[in-house]
Amino acid sequence: MKFIFQFLGLFLSTVCVAVLVSCGNQSPDTSSTPASSPTSQNASTGQMAHSGHAKININTAILSELDKLEAKLGIPALSHKIQASRPYGKTEELVSKNLLTQEQFDQIKDMVTVEDVVLTGEAKDVDYMTKLGLMKGHLLVAGELLKIQKPKEAEPHIGHPVEEIYADVEEQFRERNVKDFKNELIALQDLVKAGAKDSAKVNADFKASMQAVDGAIAGIPAAQRQSPRFVLQVINGLLDTAVAEYTASIADGKISQIIEYQDSRGFVVYANDLYQDIASQVAQKSESDKVIRENMANLIKVWPSVTPPKTPVMSPEEVSQLVKSIGLSSQKVIQSM
């Protein structure tokens, strides 16, 4: 009987984690650095203490936030490196993971944290819009499936927005003057769960849910929603999640988890829609538009229809490559604005 984890790299990284977690008292972390040094003491108490305002959580921050550290220290590509070296148990790991020297760390240590933070400013808006974008992607595929009379397949995509995402954004609705729409989503879910027998009612409820999400998106000021800098960050958030979902849909070279295939389709379709709206603005300012447009066109072909193709159009690695390339080009645009 086989129990093979197919990717050697994955296995090796598992081992790396296993080394970290299973060493007990033998851990290199504790033996090489004095655990009782004043800094690590402070870190551990700081973790439980109340945090100052507007700190950057290095475990969760988006690139544009991390760019503040990059700018302050003048280290090229630091934001990407910080993202790639996650997770961090303590902020001091920026030093022990060789991203910063102790000196550099001392300059920014008051700006960073590993605690759950309340986002503010642009980061907050990007996070909010990305989550609504994920909802939108789910609903887009749900709509396609309802249209071809597959309510059973549509159900998880109607469920995900309310089950996985809603709780994360609802706190912001009041301050953004957005009407609560949990009940609309649940009503639609119940209707579809019950077999979606009354198609007129399903259509009406579906439309109401979609409009509610659009309404919530409109909680972001229009100027921002049309800013390439802002929208590109949202697009990349959506595409990163799409890659992970697409990867999770394929086993043995076949698309075996239809739900995850469809999830990723919805996110990419919506990301593509978003890009079309800002493409001409990007084109005016940057060569990157051509690269993004081209990669986007290739990417969208991976999901030819809401029902998966017999064999995957591209491997998860190829999809990941395309998304990385879009990310790099976007970064150039974002930093230039």
Partner: peptide, 21 residues
């Protein structure tokens, strides 16, 4: 991974949620 922080035993576990067949 065991450390002592403020006189207490802290056990730190690092885990990643992944998908794999």
């Amino acid at each position: 991974t065991v450390t002592q922080e403020n006189g207490r035993t802290v056990r730190e576990f690092r885990v990643e949620a992944r998908t794999s067949p």
